[in-house]
Amino acid sequence: STVKVRLGHLEVTLHNVSEEDVRELRELWKNGADEEDLRRWLEEWKK
């Protein structure tokens, strides 16, 4: 499914993403990950 995730002022649209992935991303964000960390996660996730 396609999910729009809003993290601060960063809005990311993920395609074919699982609930688990979204949860993981939100956890990262809650734990103080900055945009760099999130971008890195997204790069990994896209592979």
Rank of each mutant, 00 (worst) to 15 (best):
S1F: 10
S1N: 14
S1H: 15
T2G: 04
T2S: 10
T2F: 06
T2N: 07
T2Q: 07
V3M: 05
V3E: 02
V3W: 01
V3R: 04
K4F: 01
K4V: 13
V5W: 00
V5M: 08
V5D: 00
R6F: 07
R6H: 10
R6A: 08
L7V: 14
L7I: 15
L7P: 00
G8K: 05
G8F: 01
G8I: 03
G8S: 05
G8T: 04
G8H: 05
G8C: 02
G8P: 03
H9T: 12
H9L: 11
H9G: 14
H9K: 13
L10R: 08
L10D: 12
L10Y: 13
L10K: 10
L10Q: 11
L10H: 14
L10V: 13
L10A: 08
V12H: 06
V12K: 02
V12E: 04
V12T: 04
V12C: 10
V12W: 03
V12S: 01
V12P: 00
V12Y: 09
V12N: 01
V12G: 01
T13F: 09
T13D: 04
L14M: 07
L14C: 06
L14N: 00
L14G: 01
H15C: 09
H15M: 08
H15G: 03
H15K: 07
H15F: 07
N16Q: 06
N16W: 05
N16R: 06
N16P: 03
N16D: 08
V17H: 01
V17Y: 03
V17C: 03
V17Q: 01
S18D: 06
S18A: 11
E19M: 10
E19G: 05
E20W: 03
E20G: 07
E20C: 05
E20Q: 14
E20P: 08
E20S: 13
D21R: 09
V22F: 14
V22N: 03
V22I: 15
V22S: 05
R23Q: 11
R23P: 01
R23F: 10
E24M: 13
E24V: 15
E24Y: 12
E24C: 09
E24T: 14
E24H: 10
L25H: 00
L25F: 05
L25N: 00
L25Q: 00
L25E: 00
L25I: 08
R26V: 12
R26M: 15
E27I: 03
E27G: 02
E27C: 08
E27T: 04
L28V: 03
L28Q: 04
K30V: 13
N31I: 05
N31F: 03
G32H: 06
G32E: 06
G32K: 04
G32D: 08
A33P: 06
A33E: 05
A33I: 09
A33N: 04
A33V: 11
D34F: 07
E35M: 09
E35V: 11
E36D: 14
E36P: 05
E36S: 12
E36Y: 05
E36T: 10
D37N: 07
D37T: 15
D37Q: 14
D37C: 08
D37A: 15
D37E: 15
L38G: 00
L38Q: 01
L38P: 00
R39L: 14
R39W: 12
R39Y: 11
R40G: 06
R40Y: 06
R40W: 04
R40P: 00
R40H: 09
W41F: 04
W41A: 02
W41I: 03
W41R: 01
W41T: 01
L42E: 01
L42C: 03
L42G: 00
L42Y: 14
E43Y: 04
E43K: 06
E44R: 12
E44W: 07
E44L: 08
E44G: 09
E44Y: 07
W45T: 05
W45F: 12
W45H: 13
W45A: 07
K46C: 04
K46N: 12
K47E: 08
K47V: 08
K47C: 07
K47R: 11
K47N: 11
K47P: 08
